[in-house]
Write a protein that binds this DNA or RNA. Structure first.
Length: 995
RNA sequence: GCGGGAGUCGCCCAGCUUGGUCAACGGCGUAAGACUGAGGCUCUUAUCCCUUAGGGGUUCGUGGGUUCAAAUCCCACCUCCCGCACCA
C-alpha cells in the first residue's frame, strides 16, 4: 500500500531548482567552512596543482573556462580521494598590453571603448579610470576572480598575489640572478618590428588591424659608382647575382647621397631612415635626382665589369634601397621591363641610350628549357604577357621563383656557386659577398604595418638585448630528462614537447616598457611576461606568509616584502645558507622561517600543471626548462595536462564574429554547473570542444531530471540497511552495476577521459536505472529500496567534482549535513560484483529484442511464446570454443572443425551441424573481451533461471495480457515444438517459437 | 619551408594504441506517440538500404595491400586545421 501512494506522488510533485540561489548558497558555505584552504599536514599526502594564472586585460570568457574548470575538477577529485589538495591562483600583471590599452583609452580609441561598453558592459566612469594601467589590471583582476568563484573553483585564495607585488618582484629578481649565475642569460642583438613614435617593439596586438609584422632579410649588393660612391641594391635572391645585366632606378624620384659607415651610398631617403634603425651610422650629405643617374653605369665588383643603369617606374622608393638589380633571365618583371624599354624610343632618345642586353641564365630547372629561351622569357611568353603592367606578371614571378627555389640548380659554369642547389647557393654567395665587403644585409618589414598610434612601423635592430639561452645544449639535456620522467596527459602530445625543446634558441627575456620586474642588474629593462611566469608555482607555497603592500593587517607571523632577499629564497627554495642568519636577515623568527621552508618542502614539487594547448611551445616549455635549471630533481614537476580550445557554436571565438561570451553572463543565465559540464562533455581533452547553448540547455535539463528524481524519492535516503532487503536477480544486478560504474568512471578520470566519465554518470547510469525500474515494475514491486539509495548516492558523489553546486544541494536534500566536496570518493566493493548477474540481465534484454524483431518482421500478434534453451552438448561445445578463441586468439573455423571431429565428446554434434558451430564462433566474436572473460569464469550458467524470472517482464514488454510464455530446455523430450525451432538454440541465444 | 595534427552514418563527437566487442557510443537535430488547457520540459519509439522468424546488403576522405577477419595495421594520394618566437 505504501508503494501505491508514493507512485502517485511522483507525478504531482512540483520541484524547482534555482541555479543562482544554489550557487550563492554554497559559495557562502564553502567560504565560511574554509574547506579549500590548505596547509602543511605532515601525515596527509598532498596534491599540488596549478593552472596558468590569467592576464587581467579583459573579463574571462567562456573559452577561458575550460582549462580552469578541468583543473578544478582535478582538484576536487583528488580532494575526495583523500589528498590534502592545494589549488591556488595568482594574477599576471606583467607585460605591455595593459599599458598600451591605457594609452588607447587616453587617446580615446573608439574601437576599444566600444568593446568595453558593448561586449563587457563596463560603466563609463570605470572606463575613464583606465587611463591608469593598474586600474585596468585591478578591475579585471576582481572581475575574473568573481567569475572563478561563481564557477565554483575550489581555490585557496589566501595565497593570491599579482606579479607586480614587491615580494613577487624580489622572487623574480632571485630567479634571474640565479639563471645568470648559471650562465644562461646572454646579451646580443635582435631585429624587431618597431614603432618609432612609441619607441617600442610592436607585435600583432599593437598594430592597426592586428597585423603581425613580418620581417624579411635582404642581401644588399654594393655596386661601385664613379669610384667614390656605392649603389646598394636589395635582393632576396643573391644567387642570381651572376645574371645581373643592369640596374633599375626610378627617374621620377629623388635619391640622397648619404655617408653610411664611412661609405658614400646612393639610396632613397626612406632607405636612409631604415638603415638608421638598423644601427648604421647614417648622415645625409646631399640629394640627387633619379634621372641624373640614368644612362650611366656602375661597376659590378664581383664580376669586375660595368653594367648600365636603366630607368624604371616600377621601382618603389619604400622598398629596399630604392634601387634594384636586374636579372632578366630569372625575373619576369625585369625581362618585361627591358622589352618595354627597348620599344620606348622617347625614353631611349631622352637619355641617349641603347638597350643591348642579353639575359644571362644562371639556374637550371627541369620545368624550363635548358637551351634557347631564358626561364623568364619562357614564362612571360607562355603567360602571353605583353607589358610590365600586366597583372599576370605577379603570378608568373611566383611560379618561377617557387620552381627555382625548390628544384633549381646553378649552372656548372657559374663561378663559386656552380652546381649548387638554389638554397645552398643563396647562403654561400651571401656569406661570400659579405666577407668580401661587397655586400651586407638589411632587415625590412614584408608588409606595411602601422602601430595603433598611427605611425608606420620599421625594423629596429635592438642591441644589448637580454636573452635566456634555451639553446644551451646542457640545459636542453636536463629538459629532456625532466620530461622523460614526467607524466604528460594526453600522452599523444609528448612528441610535441620534445620537438619544442629541440627548436628553442635564445629567447628575449626583457623589454623596455610594460609592467613587471626590473632586470636586477640593468634597470632599464623589464623582465618579460613569459620569463617571469615559469617557476612561480613555488611562490604559492610561501605567498601566504608574506606581508604584502596590499595586506597590512593580519601581519602576525608574516615576513615583510621589504625584508626579502636572495638568501631568503635560497634557503626556503633551495635549502642553502645558514638558518639563523637568514632568519635574522629577513627579520623573522626561526620558527616562522622553518614553517615556510617546511611548507615548501611539503607541497613542492608541482603534481600537476594544467594549461591550454597553445602554451606548449612557449610557457610550458619554459616552465620545464626553468625548473630543470633552478630546482633539484626531486622538485621537478610531475605531470602536465594539456587541453584543447573552445569553439563557440562551431566557430572560432573572435571579436569579429561577435561570439565572445563573458563567462559571468553565461553563469548568470544558465548556472555554473551546466556550463562546467558542457565545457567538459563535448569533446575529449585534446580536441577542440564545441560549446553551444543548446548543449548547455540539454545538460541543464538532464541535471534537473536527476534533481527531480531525487526529490521524488527523498524518503529512500532515510532507509537504513537491514537484512530484510530483497535479493532478487535484478537487485544483485543493479548492485553489481554500481560497482562497475565506480570502477570505470574512476579509471576514466585518472586518464583524464573526462567526456567518458561524464558519459557514464549522466547517460549510462540512466540506462541501468531504467532497466532496474522496468524489472521491478513488471514484478509489481517498488524500486524504493537500499539499492536505489546506493545508486543515487554513488551517482551524486561521482558527479560532484564536475557539478559541485548541484551536488552539494542534492546531498543536502538526501539528508546529509556535511559537504560532499570533502566527502569520500566511492570505492567499488568487489564482493558486490556478480558476474552471473550481468549475463542474466543481458540474456533477458536479448530475448526481448529478438522477440520484438520477429514480431516486427512477421507482424504476428503473439498469443503464445515458446523459448528453448540450448542442450547440454551445445553448452559444452560453447565452452570449448570460448576457451580456444581466448587462448589461441584465432577464430579460424576450419582449424576448430579439424580439432573437434577428433574430440569424442562433441564430434557427433559437430559433424551433424557444422553451421551452428560457425554461428557460435561468431556469437563469441561479437562479444566484448570483457564479456568473454566473464563467461570463461562462470562455470555453469543456467539460462532457465533468469528467463523464468523475467516472464512478467516479457509479458509487459510484448504488451499483451493474454500472452502465454513457456521456457523449456532443448533436451526436454516432451516439449511442444511444432516447427522444430528448438534445434536453433545456441548458448546465450535461446530459440524462439511464436504463434 | 620546418614541425604537429585531423578527415566516421544530417551536425557535433567516441572508437583506431592492443584487428573480431562495429551498421559503428553519446549528444544535438528530425519524425511519430505519451504527458499537458496549449506550449516548454519530460518520457517512449524510430532515424543507411532491403527483409512476413530473430536475417541480409552497402558504409568510416580516395585508391591499393596484409589477414579467416580492417574504421582500426601497411603503402600511396587528396583535402583541411594549428604553431614557427620577443607576444600574452
Amino acid at each position: 500500500m505504501k508503494k501505491m501512494a508514493e507512485n502517485s506522488a511522483e507525478k504531482t510533485s512540483n520541484v524547482e531548482l534555482d541555479w543562482a540561489k544554489v550557487g550563492e548558497k554554497w559559495r557562502k558555505k564553502w567560504s565560511e567552512g574554509r574547506i579549500f584552504e590548505s596547509e602543511t599536514q605532515p601525515h596527509t599526502k598532498k596534491y599540488f596543482l596549478t593552472v596558468a594564472y590569467p592576464y587581467p586585460n579583459s573579463p574571462q570568457h567562456v573559452g577561458h573556462g575550460r582549462t580552469y574548470t578541468l583543473a578544478d575538477v582535478h582538484a576536487r577529485y583528488k580532494r575526495m580521494k583523500g589528498y590534502n589538495v592545494l589549488f591556488p591562483m595568482g594574477f599576471h600583471y606583467t607585460g605591455t598590453p595593459i599599458v598600451s590599452m591605457s594609452q588607447r583609452i587616453k587617446t580615446n580609441d573608439l574601437e576599444l571603448i566600444e568593446t568595453f561598453e558593448q561586449i563587457y558592459k563596463i560603466p563609463d566612469e570605470v572606463i575613464s579610470s583606465f587611463k591608469e594601467p593598474k586600474k585596468i589590471a585591478n578591475f579585471f583582476h576582481e572581475e575574473i576572480k568573481q567569475g572563478m568563484n561563481e564557477m565554483g573553483y575550489s581555490i585557496d585564495w589566501r595565497r593570491e598575489f599579482t606579479t607586480i607585488d614587491t615580494a613577487y618582484s624580489k622572487f623574480i629578481s632571485w630567479q634571474f640572478r640565479n639563471l645568470r649565475k648559471k650562465g644562461l642569460i646572454v646579451q646580443g642583438s635582435h631585429p624587431v618590428g618597431w614603432c618609432p613614435q612609441d619607441q617600442n617593439p610592436v607585435s600583432q596586438h599593437d598594430t592597426i588591424g592586428d597585423i603581425e609584422p613580418e620581417l624579411i632579410e635582404y642581401v644588399l649588393v654594393k655596386f661601385k659608382f664613379e669610384e667614390q660612391y656605392i649603389i646598394p641594391t636589395a635582393t632576396l635572391r643573391p644567387e642570381t647575382i651572376f645574371g645581373v645585366t643592369n640596374l633599375w632606378i626610378n627617374p621620377n624620384i629623388k635619391y640622397v647621397i648619404a655617408l653610411v659607415n664611412n661609405e658614400k651610398w646612393i639610396i632613397t631617403k626612406d632607405a636612409a631612415k631604415k638603415l638608421e634603425f638598423l644601427n648604421l651610422n647614417v648622415s645625409i650629405i646631399s640629394e640627387i635626382h633619379g634621372s641624373d643617374l640614368i644612362g650611366k653605369s656602375v661597376f659590378d665588383q664581383l664580376r669586375k665589369r660595368r653594367i648600365p643603369i636603366f630607368p624604371a617606374s616600377f621601382v618603389d622608393p619604400n622598398n629596399g634601397t630604392g634601387i634594384v638589380m636586374s636579372v632578366p633571365a630569372h625575373s619576369p618583371y625585369d625581362y618585361q621591363a627591358l622589352i618595354d624599354l627597348r620599344k620606348d624610343s622617347v625614353t631611349l632618345t631622352k637619355y641617349d641610350m641603347t638597350v643591348n642586353i642579353v639575359p644571362i641564365t644562371v639556374i637550371h630547372t627541369d620545368t624550363f628549357p635548358s637551351i634557347g629561351l631564358s626561364p623568364a622569357e619562357f614564362i612571360v611568353t607562355s603567360y602571353s604577357i605583353t607589358n610590365q603592367n600586366d597583372p599576370k606578371l605577379e603570378e608568373a614571378t611566383n611560379k618561377l621563383y617557387s620552381d627555382e627555389f625548390h628544384n633549381g640548380v646553378l649552372l656548372p659554369e657559374i663561378d663559386i656557386i656552380g652546381n649548387l642547389s638554389v638554397l645552398k647557393a643563396r647562403d654561400t654567395i651571401r656569406e661570400k659577398i659579405i666577407n668580401q665587403g661587397i655586400g651586407t644585409t638589411m632587415y625590412e618589414l614584408k608588409n606595411a604595418v602601422k602601430c595603433r598610434c598611427g605611425t608606420s612601423c620599421v625594423v629596429k635592430l635592438l642591441t644589448n638585448q637580454w636573452f635566456i639561452n634555451y639553446g644551451d645544449e646542457n640545459w636542453k639535456k636536463l629538459a629532456y630528462e625532466l620530461i622523460k620522467n614526467m607524466e604528460i596527459l594526453p600522452e599523444e602530445i609528448r612528441q610535441e614537447f620534445a620537438n619544442v625543446i629541440d627548436w628553442l634558441k635564445e629567447r628575449a627575456c626583457a623589454r623596455k616598457s610594460g609592467l613587471g620586474t626590473k632586470l636586477p642588474w640593468d634597470n632599464e629593462w623589464i623582465i618579460e611576461s613569459l620569463a617571469d611566469s615559469v617557476i612561480y608555482m613555488a611562490y604559492y607555497t610561501l605567498s601566504n606568509y608574506i606581508r604584502n603592500n596590499i595586506d597590512l593587517q593580519n601581519s602576525k607571523d608574516k615576513v615583510s616584502a621589504d625584508n626579502l632577499s636572495d638568501s631568503f629564497f635560497d634557503y626556503v627554495l633551495l635549502g642553502k645558507n645558514d638558518r639563523d642568519l637568514v632568519a635574522k636577515d629577513s627579520k623573522i623568527s626561526v620558527q616562522l622561517l622553518d614553517k615556510i621552508r617546511n611548507e615548501f618542502l611539503y607541497f613542492y614539487p608541482v603534481d600537476s600543471r594544467h594549461s591550454g594547448r597553445d602554451l606548449v611551445p612557449n610557457h610550458l616549455a619554459f616552465f620545464i626548462f626553468n625548473h630543470a635549471a633552478i630546482f633539484t630533481k626531486d622538485k621537478w614537476p610531475k605531470q602536465i595536462v594539456v587541453n584543447g580550445s573552445v569553439l563557440m557554436e562551431g566557430k572560432k571565438m573572435s571579436k569579429s564574429f561577435g561570439n565572445i561570451i563573458p563567462l559571468r553572463h553565461a553563469i548568470e543565465e544558465y548556472g555554473a554547473d551546466p556550463i562546467r559540464l558542457t565545457m567538459l562533455a563535448s569533446a575529449e581533452i585534446l580536441q577542440d570542444s564545441d560549446f553551444s547553448f543548446d548543449l548547455v540547455k540539454g545538460i541543464r535539463s538532464k541535471l534537473f531530471e536527476i534533481y527531480r528524481a531525487i526529490c521524488t524519492h527523498k524518503s529512500v535516503f532515510t532507509i537504513i540497511h537491514n537484512s530484510t532487503e530483497c535479493n532478487e536477480l535484478e537487485d544483485l544486478w543493479i548492485s553489481s552495476r554500481i560497482q562497475h560504474i565506480i570502477l570505470e568512471t574512476t579509471s576514466a578520470i585518472e586518464k583524464f577521459r573526462i567526456r567518458e566519465a561524464l558519459h557514464n554518470i549522466l547517460y549510462l547510469m540512466d540506462n541501468d536505472l531504467q532497466w532496474y525500474h522496468k524489472r521491478k515494475l513488471a514484478k509489481n514491486k517498488s524500486i524504493r529500496n537500499i539499492y536505489l539509495k546506493e545508486f543515487f548516492e554513488t551517482r551524486i558523489k561521482l558527479l560532484s567534482p564536475f557539478a559541485p553546486f548541484f551536488c552539494e544541494e542534492v546531498w543536502e536534500i538526501m539528508g546529509n549535513h556535511s559537504f560532499i566536496s570533502i566527502d569520500q570518493w566511492p570505492e567499488a566493493d568487489d564482493s558486490k560484483i556478480r558476474l552471473k548477474s550481468e549475463d542474466n540481465e543481458r540474456l533477458i534484454q536479448d530475448i526481448i529484442l529478438d522477440i520484438q524483431k520477429i514480431t516486427k518482421v512477421t507482424k504476428i500478434v503473439p498469443k503464445r511464446i515458446m523459448i528453448y534453451t540450448s542442450s547440454t552438448i551445445k553448452c559444452i561445445l560453447y565452452k570449448k570454443l570460448l576457451d580456444r578463441i581466448q587462448s589461441q586468439s584465432t577464430a579460424n573455423f576450419g582449424l576448430f572443425m579439424k580439432e573437434f571431429v577428433n574430440d569424442s565428446e562433441v564430434k557427433d554434434f559437430v559433424k551433424h551441424d557444422p553451421d551452428l558451430v560457425k554461428k557460435m564462433i561468431n556469437d563469441i566474436l561479437s562479444e566484448s573481451l570483457e564479456v568473454r572473460q566473464r563467461r570463461m569464469k562462470i562455470d555453469s550458467f543456467n539460462e532457465l533461471i533468469p528467463l523464468q524470472d523475467a516472464i512478467s517482464l516479457l509479458i509487459s514488454e510484448i504488451g499483451n495480457d493474454q500472452l502465454e510464455v513457456s521456457i523449456l530446455c532443448e533436451d526436454n523430450s516432451n516439449k511442444y515444438d511444432p516447427k522444430q525451432k528448438s534445434k536453433f538454440a545456441r548458448p546465450y541465444k535461446p530459440a524462439i517459437y511464436i504463434e
